[in-house]
Design a protein around this nucleic acid. Structure first.
Length: 352
DNA sequence: GTTCTAGAAC
DNA sequence: GTTCTAGAAC
């Protein structure tokens, strides 16, 4: 099924801090949770120069790095460069973190979430120390663990190649930002409404007081993929959008538009249902503004009509250039010089 | 898509 | 000096 497939491909990587000399020191770092590490049983570091809270580590499993903040007084370093007390630096796979005074080296690994921790520990205890060190052999456990999603065996430990491969993993496992809607639409906490054909979520970065997205369960990448067979679905998406407006903002008497970005950034077709106040701190730049107020925004009804007429959606040449258009008020069409001035101007038109 | 930031614009 | 944008990085 589509649902199961989507859930499978968006599974997050697990993050591990791995001792290079002391290979049995493997510490799992949960995504986005700050963890304090230093002298203690976890690391087996007994050196008094190392604080019990020497560093604060925060992993980002979607971006593939951890943020290292030096809390202790004595120097923590990454690739032999001192971080500095209360300073924060990113640690990526292939780079070496020395906990204190260029001692106690660690590196970071991101592995598939599916591989269980027992397996990790078992491998760890059965390995001799040198097998887990940072040598340059392409067959080291380090490189294999780090890149266990790479389909072929053509792996090198060169740092730039390592980073490229890490990026490849991210794009291939759909952890890339452009796949974010597919994740959000599956999250029950995000769902405002759902039926057998569509789901509605709030836009994560709303560009107006009301801003929802209507997404079909059916996997349709973008407007380009739309054909006559989708007409019934498009009508349904539009009707659901209108119902959401009625149910959530009838008292506000806000004006709305329902439509699609001609050239969307995010994968998976989504109908924007957005109030026309554009009163939102998330509306920050020209691209945001023009994507909703120029012909870059295609009304849902126009899209439906075009498919009825031509069998598909044709995006005009030069549409992407519309994002750079001068800023014009959507109500009175007066041009504004900057985004802050535009926002100030819009207040004139607010009803409340 | 957002965040970050250099440097343009003021 | 500050504000703001645009492009790179993610």
């Amino acid at each position: 099924m589509v649902t199961a497939g989507v859930l499978n491909i968006v599974k997050m990587l697990e993050c591990w801090l791995v001792g290079i000399e002391n290979t049995c020191s493997r510490i799992k770092l949960p995504h986005a949770v700050p963890v304090l590490i230093g002298r203690g049983p976890e690391t087996q570091i007994v050196d008094k120069k190392c604080s019990r809270h020497q560093v604060q580590l925060t992993s980002d499993c979607s971006k593939g790095y951890i943020k290292v903040k030096q809390i202790g007084t004595n120097p923590t370093s990454i690739d032999s460069v001192d971080i500095g007390k209360d300073q924060e630096v990113k640690l990526k796979p292939g780079h070496v973190l020395h906990m204190v005074n260029k001692l106690y080296p660690y590196t970071v690994e991101f592995v598939k979430g599916q591989s269980d921790s027992k397996d990790q520990l078992k491998k760890c205890t059965s390995k001799r120390p040198h097998e887990n060190s940072l040598n340059k052999s392409p067959e080291t456990k380090f490189s294999k663990l780090q890149f266990n999603d790479v389909p072929d065996g053509n792996q090198r430990t060169n740092n730039s190649t390592a980073e490229q491969q890490q990026h490849t993993i991210q794009s291939e496992n759909k952890g890339h930002w452009s796949q974010g809607l597919k994740v959000s639409m599956q999250d029950p906490k995000m769902q405002i409404f759902k039926d057998d054909k569509v789901v509605v979520i709030k836009d994560k970065y709303p560009k107006a007081r009301y801003h929802w997205l209507v997404l079909p369960w059916q996997s349709i990448s973008s407007l380009k993929a739309l054909r006559s067979e989708h007409l019934e679905l498009l009508h349904h998406m539009h009707a659901v959008g209108e119902n959401i407006i009625r149910d959530h903002s009838s008292l506000s008497r806000a004006k709305f538009r329902l439509g699609y970005h001609a050239i969307p950034s995010m994968s998976h077709i989504h109908l924007h249902v957005i109030s026309q106040d554009f009163d939102s701190p998330c509306l920050k730049n020209k691209k945001h503004w023009n994507s909703f107020t120029t012909e870059y925004f295609l009304d849902s009804q126009e899209v439906i009509d075009m498919i009825k007429l031509k069998g598909k959606v044709e995006v005009k040449d030069g549409t992407s250039e519309l994002l750079k258009s001068p800023l014009k008020c959507n109500v009175c069409k007066v041009q504004q010089a900057t985004i802050p001035q535009l926002k100030e101007h819009l207040k004139k038109h607010f009803t409340s």
